[in-house]
Amino acid sequence: MDPAEVEFLAEKEPVTVIPNFSLDKVYLIGGDLGPFNPGLPVDVPVWLALNLKQRQRCRIVPPAWMDVEKLEELRDLERREEAFSPVPSPYYMELTKLLLNYASDNIPKADEIRTLVKDIWDTRIAKLRLSADSFISQMEAHAKLDNLTLMEINTVRVFLLDSLNCMYKLRSNLQPDICNCDFFFFISY
């Protein structure tokens, strides 16, 4: 999956905005939005929030977890624990990136938040690499991956799954009748 597609999914998350215009309820296929009144907070999907923000039609209210103190706690917890700790949002990385890139003037201490989220991400990815390594070296057949987000899974997906497949083929070729999957696609165009 392309990282942009994960970001696409993240853009469906709701975020609170304070519009500076008024508009009746909008009946979208995916659900109703609004009504919009100047100064009154309203929940919209991130894709719309960013669009309104870019046209300077609203102010974005950062999600509650996007706060230096809370993120510091999370970072320390993440560093302390060996397992993956729960994340504040299944799309924390993508949302941080999107909101900070397009609405950093609405988010207090944007730079600190960026660094903290990056720290959390780095710690988690390091854990993920370690556990992928032990998964492969112990030749496990099942792993539980609670608290991992889609973006994190996506960063290891292609490499991990391809290596697992390759190893499986190499191993099963020792016992020929197990797998019919061929190494090569014979008719390649």
Binding site: L161, L164, N165, C179, N180, C181, D182, F185, F186
Partner: peptide, 9 residues
């Protein structure tokens, strides 16, 4: 043509 590999993870 190879079959889909159902043993993939």
């Amino acid at each position: 043509v190879p079959e889909p590999c159902l043993d993939s993870f």
